[in-house]
Design a protein around this nucleic acid. Structure first.
Lengths: 112, 112
DNA sequence: ACTTTATACTATGCATCATACACTATTGTT
DNA sequence: AACAATAGTGTATGATGCATAGTATAAAGT
């Protein structure tokens, strides 16, 4: 893939990562599990992208986190706050709207 | 709309503007007409956002531009280059892929 | 003993978008 | 004739998020 296409795709993905992560935090998850969960769904995300994102979300009070030290390895679990749930649902609506609008624009002569 | 939701939505839109603009430049358009064309489709874009975008696209050789001075008001028309068409189609595919993946993630308990 | 997996995290730079401007010429209205 | 509104093209600056490239540790597997 050309570097140009690559950077355009990056920009296109931007913001969707947040939405994807929020969607998975309705049930508690820790960073590492999130990476794999999303990978399974075809969305690859680097840890070095995810952790700062989680930090942001926590700062914005969309998620809360807590350490679980009962297992052999300590894990920090993240989960949506009520406010986070609300924002998630609104953001989801926004995405559906944008998605539909774009579908309309892109429809038409599909010459392959 | 809260400022947080606003900024999240902005991020979500990011990159989609490029795709939207590219999709309209299969036929020649000038800046002002593009704004209105997209507006009709529900996508609002400020001129001060569009013009720098067009500049970028031209620099990346995805579009070319030329002045039309035959009308009463001079207009600068933009249109896709062959390379631009190619990139557009690939980017479109990327979007469709991402879009589908996200649909999957967002599906599920729609408690309204 | 060595390597891989699991797990968490930081720092820096680049690109895009929003916001706020500046500018001109034509059309429409009073 | 004066004025406002529309049509039209642009620039500068700042905020922000993602990618890239790292650091670090402990458990499990060989």
């Amino acid at each position: 893939m050309s570097t140009l296409l690559n950077s355009l795709t990056t920009e296109l993905r931007r913001g969707t990562l947040t939405l994807a992560v929020l969607s998975q935090l309705r049930t508690p998850q820790y960073g590492y599990s999130l990476v794999q969960l999303l990978e399974q769904c075809g969305i690859s995300i680097e840890q070095s992208t995810l952790y700062p994102l989680l930090r942001r979300l926590e700062k914005q009070e969309l998620v809360t986190s807590s350490w679980d030290t009962t297992e052999s390895r300590p894990r920090r679990y993240y989960v949506l706050t009520p406010y986070g749930i609300e924002i998630y649902q609104q953001l989801k609506k926004e995405w559906e709207k944008t998605s539909q609008e774009l579908s309309l624009l892109l429809k038409g002569e599909d010459n392959e």
